[in-house]
């Protein structure tokens, strides 16, 4: 299992870079990982809103929500979502939120 060292801590990730120990997630993890997902500088409030929303939904349902629902509930469109997370919602946003990897044609 590959590991990644972020902000002085080691995390187990899968081959695509998804956090394996979901309970190890922390805000520091997300911030430190942001650069790998093409996000420059500090995560903004808008980023955190999405990340927190994803984590809440995941806790309730065990999966990320439909992207349309994510946009609608957070009052943003797809374009803005891709601006916030350039590597895409299914990969980038979920990775930072510490969700397990979405599989299949996503």
């Amino acid at each position: 299992m590959p590991e990644i060292e972020l902000a002085g801590k080691k995390y187990e990730i899968d081959e695509d870079g998804f956090l394996q120990e979901l309970d190890k997630w922390s805000k520091e993890f997300a911030q430190a990982y942001a650069k790998n997902e093409d996000i420059e500088g500090q995560l903004t409030e808008e980023h955190w809103k999405i990340i927190n929303y994803l984590r809440d939904y995941f806790q309730k349902f065990g999966i990320a929500p439909m992207i349309r629902k994510l946009c609608k509930d957070n009052g943003i469109d797809m374009k803005r979502l891709y601006e916030l997370f350039p590597t895409g919602p299914a990969k980038g946003a979920c990775k930072l939120a510490g969700l397990s990897k979405p599989t299949g044609c996503v």
Binding site: G62, R68, T103, G104
Partner: peptide
């Protein structure tokens, strides 16, 4: 294949 639990699926249909 995407490991969507039944409850999440129903929530998505409602949405």
């Amino acid at each position: 294949t995407s490991a969507i639990p039944k409850a999440a699926f129903i929530d998505t249909l409602d949405f």
